[in-house]
């Protein structure tokens, strides 16, 4: 194990030192970041990609195909911010400021795809329960697949939230299945998967904000009293109130960062493994063969690990959300 790690480290370091024409950093970041096109593969030296529509709201709606701006780097008064600029890689105005850009990017398309998949699967499951008498038949097909997942979260809600858990269980279920689906689809390396949706901070931030508002807009009086006027001696009261407020605000941030960082790190790890094969390609057949064998084995290991992490992260996000909701639903003793 030590030897394998050593080999990888040596090869990695030498690769970064020597590979001039293969910028690993760029390759990896191109994969994990959002983009205006969906690069699927190369065919006969030409890239096969889906050019996604750019939609900019800037004194009216400007919509055009992204290949127009990607080919020349400039279109209709907008250009793509160069490397090192403030909004690197994004479409900006001539003066470098960023318009409200709601383009259908790679992640947005992936989001559509995941959302539709989630809707189809859950509604099909619901249809099974509407069409069958669950008291007389055991679930089959898609219902058998989805029921354990759904009931796991439903029971989690029951355990953590208490009496009115039925109000919150659909939210927790949507969050859980959305994250789970997105995580899994993110591991699939080819179209229509592989976009790093849950490894994108905007995505996780939205989910965390949904949790934040669910928690703080449906809290009980007791919950707000605990935050703004905790039961401590007079002098400590303002201090504790500040701390409690801060803690309430930090919760969604921690949710955001945890999911985002885990999924991003997973993607980067797997991409690194794949990249090592190409780096080793320069060092002759022996190195390539041996290195490839090792990296493929490692890649498989990381992929499996990533599947585990996908589930665990979805579970943790949902569980913490349910615990936060449960805390906000507490009643005075």
């Amino acid at each position: 194990m030590k030897r394998i790690l050593l080999i990888i480290m040596i090869s990695l370091s030498s690769a970064f030192a020597k590979a001039d024409d293969l910028d690993i950093g760029n390759v990896i970041f191109d994969h994990v970041l959002d983009s205006y096109e969906w690069h699927i593969t190369e065919w006969k030296g030409k890239p096969v990609a889906i050019h996604l529509p750019v939609i900019i709201i800037d004194h009216g709606i400007h919509a055009f195909n992204s290949h127009k701006i990607l080919e020349t780097g400039e279109y209709g008064g907008y250009h793509i911010a160069p490397e090192g600029a403030k909004h690197e890689g994004k479409i900006v105005r001539a003066d470098g400021t960023k318009p409200f850009d709601i383009s259908i990017t790679k992640n947005v398309l992936q989001l559509f795809f995941n959302a539709i998949l989630l809707l189809v699967i859950v509604l099909l499951t619901a249809r099974w329960y509407r069409r069958h008498d669950a008291l007389k038949e055991h679930p089959t097909g898609i219902a058998a697949l989805m029921e354990p997942l759904i009931m796991m979260v439903h029971d989690m809600a029951k355990e953590n939230i208490g009496e009115d858990y039925r109000r919150y269980s659909p939210f927790l279920l949507t969050v859980f299945l959305f994250i789970l689906f997105s995580n899994f689809i993110g591991i699939i390396p080819f179209f229509p998967g592989g976009a790093n949706l849950t490894g994108n901070i905007a995505c996780t931030l939205t989910l965390a904000l949904f949790t934040f508002f669910t928690v703080n807009l449906t809290g009980t009086k007791h919950y707000y009293k605990e935050i703004f006027s905790p039961d401590v001696p007079g002098v400590l009261k303002p201090l504790m109130a500040i701390i409690e407020t801060f803690s309430a605000l930090v919760k969604p941030i921690s949710l955001t960062i945890r999911l985002f960082a885990n999924m991003l790190a997973g993607h980067i790890q797997i991409l690194c493994m794949v990249c090592i094969i190409f780096i080793l390609g320069k060092y002759g057949p022996v190195m390539t063969g041996g290195g490839t064998l090792i990296t493929v084995l490692f890649g498989i290991f990381l992929d499996v690990l990533e599947m585990l992490i996908s589930f665990i992260q979805a579970y943790i996000f949902t569980m913490l959300s349910s615990i936060y909701i449960g805390m906000a639903r507490q009643k005075a003793e």
Binding site: F29, K86, D101, T105, A115, A202, T206, L209
Partner: peptide
Amino acid sequence: MNLITPDTGLLFWMVLIF
């Protein structure tokens, strides 16, 4: 910085779709 700056476009779509 690109990595940890939430993109408003995706944020918008995410809120809408979710």
